[in-house]
């Protein structure tokens, strides 16, 4: 639409044509007492200098923001460019300036990559390079490709489209809402209409992960640590826009970690996980060893490691059963868990 055509439309007609505009118009307090069925041109005519100044309103600025918003949202919705089928890293250098020893590191949806290395070795820089879609313009000189091509700049600059979603141990819910209200708000910000079914799916997925179930009416701030983590994981898997999920350790307490990873990969996410927990690290398809600021090695999880993993999983299962038993007040007996 040209500027002239837009001016002939009323806010209401615009929202009907582009439902995503409701969020935009909600923020326009200058028109809160005006009739949204009138055309924008007519509404502008009603505004005198005092009204404009009170609401810090400027016609030209408003029109250009409205047109930006429409153009950008149209570009995003249903646009194949923003489907990520593959993410790859072309090598840069480590802190000493030596080239990294790999040709191309590839991440695909539904796969898990663990990242290991001591604190300060450059794990955060690697993740930041991915998030910033580095193009040889960071310290490491790495380059990120999306779908084997140079990525669209929108990945870097748009507030509405971020490549990486993050889950870390010290995150908390801070909003004063129930689980259902909270998920509805998240769905709305993602322009998901008719979110009822999706919300129920997220809650039931979260309840499968958490040791203790919670109801849809629980306040999110009243959830236990394990429940919060479970809800964050289920919500990130099913409702986050970002194709890459970065996990900074998942604590052992009160959450089924294997299932958590299954939910994420099941939703076509590329999962990156910074961890030194053998149970998690070996669940990955590959692991990256970081040393001196560079990617030192890329290791495919070996058959032997997979055997080790299944032993670890048995031990982990035992622990979980004991935890459940303790919670219900049982007395533990050796032969129950052999």
């Amino acid at each position: 639409m040209t500027q002239r055509e837009i001016l002939q439309q009323s806010p209401q007609a615009l929202i009907e044509k582009y439902p995503f505009l409701s969020a935009f118009f909600e923020g326009q307090h200058w028109m809160s007492k005006l009739n949204p069925e009138q055309s924008l041109a007519d509404l502008f005519a009603l505004i005198d200098d005092e009204h404009a100044e009170d609401h810090a309103f400027d016609v030209q600025e408003f029109i250009s923001q409205l047109m930006d918003f429409i153009a950008e949202m149209k570009a995003f919705i249903g646009n194949e460019t923003f489907q990520v089928h593959q993410l790859s890293i072309l090598p840069g250098t480590n802190k000493s300036g030596e080239p990294e020893g790999f040709e191309k590191l590839v991440f695909e949806p539904r796969t898990i990559t663990s990242i290991v290395g001591p604190t300060g070795s450059g794990k955060s820089r690697l993740l930041a390079d991915i998030e910033w879609v580095a193009q040889g313009d960071t310290q490491t000189q790495r380059r990120i490709l999306i779908n084997e091509e140079l990525p669209d700049n929108a990945w870097r600059f748009s507030g509405n489209r971020k490549l990486v979603a993050q889950l870390s141990q010290n995150m908390n819910f801070v909003m004063d809402l129930t689980v259902t209200e909270f998920l509805a708000l998240h769905a709305k910000s993602r322009m998901v209409t008719d979110s009822g079914d999706l919300i129920m799916r997220i809650i039931s997925a979260a309840n499968e992960l958490a040791g203790e179930k919670f109801s849809p009416d629980t306040a999110i701030t009243a959830l236990s640590g394990g429940q919060s983590r479970a809800l964050m994981i289920a919500d990130t898997a099913l409702l986050s826009q970002s194709p890459v999920v970065l996990i900074d350790e998942i604590e052992n307490a009160g959450i089924d970690r294997k299932k958590a990873l299954e939910i994420l990969t099941g939703e076509d996410k590329i999962v990156l996980m910074a961890t030194h927990d053998p149970l998690l690290a070996l669940m990955a398809d590959q692991r990256i060893v970081i040393k001196n600021g560079g990617i030192h090695r890329i290791i495919k999880t070996s058959a032997e490691e997979r055997t080790l993993l299944s032993e670890l999983e048995k031990a982990d299962l035992k622990q979980q059963q004991m935890r459940t038993a303790l919670r219900s007040g049982a007395v533990l007996q050796r032969d129950m868990y052999l």
């Binding site: 979603a165 010290n170 919060s228 919500d235």
Partner: peptide
Amino acid sequence: GDIVSQAEREV
């Protein structure tokens, strides 16, 4: 952003 959930960051 390091202390709130991914969902809250997105909202």
